[in-house]
Design a protein around this nucleic acid. Structure first.
Lengths: 114, 114
DNA sequence: GTATTGCATAATCAAAAGGTTATGAATAGG
DNA sequence: CCTATTCATAACCTTTTGATTATGCAATAC
């Protein structure tokens, strides 16, 4: 049986996402990909300040969190920032950030299953 | 000389914020504070699944990230979710989430699916 | 007064995470 | 074919981090 998007899968992804974003080097890599578009590991290593294996590992975590995608071309691998990757975080923020300031009014109408 | 809000201070706070949010137990504590409002350490310990010292330490990190405030009342300490605490993360997302969506929106659209 | 409750901190530990160098597998180029 | 490039993985080390129990200090209760 093929798995539908279980609640648990969602929370696992969300956790991987928050963890992926918690490291400054990873955020820098992601920011660079956003600004400059698709980049090879070689190019990312040049601007990262850490070793190439470390860049590969960081990219692996970003990929696992679905924040980037990888494209193999010959001996090079090109990574691209993934447009919708931050959506789960945005969703979380919508509930625990934005609604938060207007807690009393907003929660009444939502019935978020306390 | 009193320090104005230096760039470095900003990035330090932002880093503390992302790190604070990277742990599931801390997020659960924060979520509970958002939903239920001000709570004592005792009450938070009861729902957290970890020991009281651990709750205190998690709350300390949330406080350092400016996501909660503490109010001492007698021998109890009441913690409250801080409304504007997530602002730096929202700002970051505005740049590296929205900008990024814009770059690719023509190709991918904005839905939350695959 | 003494006992108890609520919280923070210290001491300690195991596991996770970030870093490195070394290695190996493909691909490209001479 | 031989060499160089690109990348991922392995082995290893150090620091950080999440967790525990033990302790100490205030404030409340008796």
């Amino acid at each position: 049986m093929i798995a539908p998007p279980y609640q648990e899968d969602r929370s696992v992804l969300r956790d991987a996402l928050f963890k992926a974003l918690s490291d400054g080097t990873r955020r820098a890599l992601l920011e660079y990909l956003v600004r400059e578009g698709e980049q090879s590991v070689h190019a990312l290593t040049a601007i990262s300040g850490v070793s190439q294996p470390m860049v590969s590992r960081h990219l692996g975590k970003l990929k696992q969190a679905r924040l980037v995608t990888a494209r193999r071309a010959g001996r090079e691998t090109y990574y691209t920032a993934r447009a919708k990757g931050l959506a789960p975080v945005v969703q979380w923020m919508a509930v625990y950030g934005a609604l938060w300031s207007q807690r009393f009014s907003a929660l009444e109408g939502l019935g978020d299953g306390e």
